[in-house]
């Protein structure tokens, strides 16, 4: 089947039909930068065939369990896990999902560094990745402050000096349980989810970065015809 025989979706309407409403403009822009086939792909470039590509997904899968176990801990409040074996188990799930979240995220970061994955206008993808790492560290840290045990007590004492010295401690008091509770269960999860979502959308929009020094003469590119390449670039 050639391209001309395919039913083409009318993403670019005729000039007289162009909808100038805000919603219409937004819809056109979204469909242009992130068409459904990029958002939910059913194929990947052939070079995406190594285990090293699995760690981003591993981090997201861990995040599912971080949020899930955190939601269960929320049901009964911050002291529940000291009193109930079931609560303790969910606390353990929360701890280990966080450990694996960082485990996968750091390997993902190493992998993307060695791939120089910021090439081809993907710098913002890299930056959102680094920001999500940083925000996750703050989120994880506030979680350690909420254990309501000796560890959280000590961390609150020890961490205050760096924050006070940099002027942040006056507004972000790590020894204030109530304040840290709100940051940990509301503000920081929202921040992590938003920045991770943005990161994933950027990855989907730009596609997976081609190998370093890939050239048109490479076998994985040679087999495609010029017409096809042009039509896809349009």
């Amino acid at each position: 089947m050639t391209d001309s025989q395919l039913p083409q979706p009318t993403l670019e309407p005729e000039p007289e039909d162009v909808d100038h409403s805000w919603s219409g403009r937004l819809r056109r822009w979204v469909l242009k930068v992130l068409p459904p086939e990029k958002l939910l792909p059913t194929s990947q470039p052939s070079y995406v065939a190594t285990w090293i590509y699995m760690f981003g997904m591993g981090a997201i899968a861990s995040l599912v369990f971080v949020i899930g176990s955190g939601a269960v801990l929320s049901l009964n409040g911050p002291m529940w896990w000291h009193l109930s074996p079931l609560g303790h188990f969910f606390n353990s799930l929360h701890l280990w999902s966080v450990e694996f979240f960082f485990f996968f995220m750091v390997i993902h970061l190493w992998a993307k560094f060695w791939m120089a994955a910021w090439r081809g206008n993907r710098a913002l993808t890299w930056i959102t990745g680094v920001v999500s790492f940083a925000v996750s560290i703050v989120a994880g840290f506030t979680g350690y402050l909420l254990q309501t045990n000796f560890d959280s007590q000590w961390i609150a004492y020890q961490a205050k000096d760096a924050l006070n010295a940099s002027g942040i401690g006056a507004w972000f008091n790590v020894a204030n349980f109530g304040q840290m509770f709100m940051w940990h269960i509301l503000l920081l999860p929202i921040a992590v989810l938003v920045i991770v979502a943005l990161h994933v959308l950027l990855v989907r929009g730009h596609g997976v970065v081609p190998p370093l020094d890939a050239a048109e003469s490479d076998s994985q590119l040679r087999e495609t015809t010029p017409t096809e390449a042009t039509s896809r670039e349009a």
Binding site: P41, T42, S43, S46, M57, F65, L93, P210, E216, D218
Partner: peptide, 30 residues
């Protein structure tokens, strides 16, 4: 080549299936 959409050979892939398998495997580990 870095900037434009990949127009070389591809392999089948299923994003949702990978996510589902990822959640399952990671869930078992955790």
């Amino acid at each position: 080549l870095d900037v434009r959409a990949w127009n070389g050979t591809t392999r089948p892939y299923d994003l949702l299936k990978e996510l589902a398998i990822g959640v399952l495997v990671v869930g078992v580990i955790i």
